[in-house]
Design a protein around this nucleic acid. Structure first.
Lengths: 164, 164
DNA sequence: CGGCGCGCGTTATATTATTACATTCCGTCC
DNA sequence: GGACGGAATGTAATAATATAACGCGCGCCG
């Protein structure tokens, strides 16, 4: 069973976050092993850093974070790792924030949608199933062939709404 | 009656584009008059430039475009005009492209969704009604209060799919 | 062993956007 | 009409995000 969640989307403040990180890294190892991809030290480290919390990470903050570690701190270092992780489906880019979050794989198939809380700055990933269908219908009506869906919703998560 | 459209979304190649521009500017004038906003020369010019075609405009391309016109060509000039037009609801920002398109107001109420053709680089704005409902349901289940919806779909429009 | 491809380092530069402050324009109030 | 005040614009500098181009080293595979 996963950790307790507020309605299955945003993790409860008390959740065992180390476990999120461990699971994410283990999942990444599995994926890379299965698909013959190389989870190099830099790539693994960037993935860990992204999973430091449930807030989206900015590329240049990741760069800052690896200062002092034995990696280059020039921008291409982190952008290359991000590209790899994006291609591997291990992270997502949040377009409206120019930032990156770990893929929590709860959506499994289909395009996810993202809930972005402007209170705590966390992002939750939901299965975009119903939304995807509605998009498909609208696109079909317009004679449009869908490649990729970007669905990013800003607002307040349950916890932050209670605080307000 | 509006110009002939391909399924009501992407304008036909033959459409009277000057008319799009004239309508957009007239609408902007109306909106600004109604709400006591000032459609200054720069703002009007930027709006016209954005309506030059149905492709999204980049901020620095707009800046280039006003070279030689009696406006400052420093970035804040165009960003301020864009902010004004965004606030007034006269244009939209396409997050996944860092670019701006004219609001065609066909959506009327509710959040629009955008179809972005990777063939011709045009963007169509659709009413996001069905999608918005699906988003609302998913958000409610997650205990999330929605402020703003960003729905951007990439793919191929009818015309470009036929070409392929 | 030789070549090839991938990952990484490095430098430079491109692209997108904002901050801060000075100046000008314009309507309002006296 | 003149003084004030707020909005709009000009200007210079800089911040934030992202990519291009090139070379090196290492492991794999013939």
């Amino acid at each position: 069973m996963p950790e307790p969640m507020q309605n299955g989307a945003f993790p409860a403040p008390s959740h065992d976050h180390d476990r999120c990180v461990r699971q994410a890294v283990a999942h990444a190892e599995q994926v890379c092993a299965d698909r013959d991809l190389r989870l190099t030290p830099i790539r693994r480290r960037v993935l860990e850093l992204i999973w430091t919390n449930h807030q989206p990470s900015k590329a240049y903050d990741l760069l800052e974070a690896i200062r002092g570690e034995p990696f280059s701190t020039a921008p291409p270092t982190v952008y290359r790792a991000l590209d790899f992780l994006l291609d591997a489906g291990l992270i997502h880019r949040i377009e409206s924030l120019n930032a990156y979050v770990g893929c929590d794989a709860r959506h499994v198939a289909g395009s996810p949608m993202f809930l972005i809380c402007r209170g705590c700055d966390r992002v939750a990933e939901l299965p975009g199933t119903g939304v995807g269908k509605a998009i498909g219908r609208a696109a079909k009506r317009a004679g449009f062939a869908v490649d990729q869906e970007t669905v990013e919703i800003s607002g307040l998560c349950g916890g932050c709404a209670d605080d307000a």
